[in-house]
Simulated assay, not measured.
Amino acid sequence: MARARDESSPLFAGNAAGTLRLIFYLALAMVLMVLDHRSGWLWRLRYGAAVVVEPVYRLAGLPAVGVRTLSVAFADRERLTEQNQRLREDLLLANAKLNRMAAVAEQNQRLKELLDTQHSLELNVQLARVIGVDMGAYRYQVTLNMGARDGVKPGQPVIDAHGVMGQVKEVLPTTSVVMLVTDPAHAIPVEIERSGLRTVAYGSRDGNQLTLPNIPLAADVRVGDHLLTSGLGGRFPPGFPVGEIRSVAPASTGMFMVAQAQPAADIDRSEDVLLLHDQAEPDGPPTPVKSMGPPSDLAPVMGDAQAAPAHPSSAPSIKPSTPPATPGVQP
């Protein structure tokens, strides 16, 4: 709705007085602009006004700044949490790979020791892996992943990188059972490396050590002496480490000395073993192996038991009264 002439602004009035006022204001504006351009005094005025007005602007912008800061903080926290989770997963994976590499390196070291043993002794051997352990009551044996199809035969000696582990007791098509030297039913002729004394080392009931029960009282046996296979009977080749004497004491009968020895082989740790081939046939008939009964009923299993009797006064030859329980098994 248009204003009436009497309600219109006096600046834009249609009379001469209004026109003069308009010209005056325009001239004043031009003068002020020229003065400001030449002397800059209006800049000082604006600067002072900005000092007063700027806090008002900052106060008005605080809500927006706070919201933006919170959003950035939450975003950074979430990103840092995800990054931390990824780093933890990478660390766990790296540790797992490192442990696996350490295990593989240890396995490679064991295999290298086995190969070094084969090359140094120039033996015809076959590498096998332990796939089962049977540590039952008075029975200590392991299962290998090689059997009759791989040419394994009963009575074959089994060694690891450190010494004699035992001999093959039973052969199946794809697997074989090895009786350990610490089995109470096992016996092996040995020779003391330092003095050359020959005797027989038996397994023990606890399956952790060897027992030498028939050492003469006058024999020179000391703690720390090393036991080697004597080679008597032809089952185990001579010169293989069997164990180390840990203790020597008189027997309860007072007629002999009894020694305890620690096996040289890693009985409870070896994962790879060597099967010896092309060994000489043992002298004399095989000793039956009884699978049942307490250790006192078990005949010592050894291929050359005839050449090294368990007692000095025992007969020099052993003749079984019954056929072998396991044909062809030579301890």
Rank of each mutant, 00 (worst) to 15 (best):
G203K: 14
G203E: 12
S204G: 09
D206R: 12
D206N: 15
D206P: 12
D206E: 15
G207P: 10
N208G: 06
N208H: 12
N208C: 13
Q209R: 15
Q209N: 13
Q209M: 07
L210V: 01
L210G: 10
L210Y: 05
T211V: 14
T211P: 09
L212D: 07
L212Q: 07
L212N: 09
P213E: 06
P213R: 01
N214D: 15
N214F: 13
I215K: 09
L217M: 13
L217N: 13
L217Y: 11
A218H: 14
V221W: 15
V221P: 02
V221M: 09
V221T: 06
V221I: 08
R222K: 14
R222M: 09
R222W: 13
V223L: 05
G224W: 03
G224M: 02
D225R: 11
D225E: 11
H226P: 05
L227S: 09
L227F: 10
L228W: 08
L228H: 08
L228V: 09
T229Y: 08
T229I: 04
S230P: 02
L232M: 12
G233K: 07
G233F: 02
G234L: 01
G234E: 09
R235V: 03
F236L: 04
P237V: 00
P237N: 03
P237G: 05
P238H: 02
G239Y: 11
G239A: 03
F240A: 00
F240S: 00
F240N: 06
P241M: 00
P241H: 00
V242W: 04
G243K: 01
G243I: 00
G243H: 00
E244C: 01
E244K: 08
I245V: 05
R246D: 14
R246F: 03
S247W: 10
S247K: 11
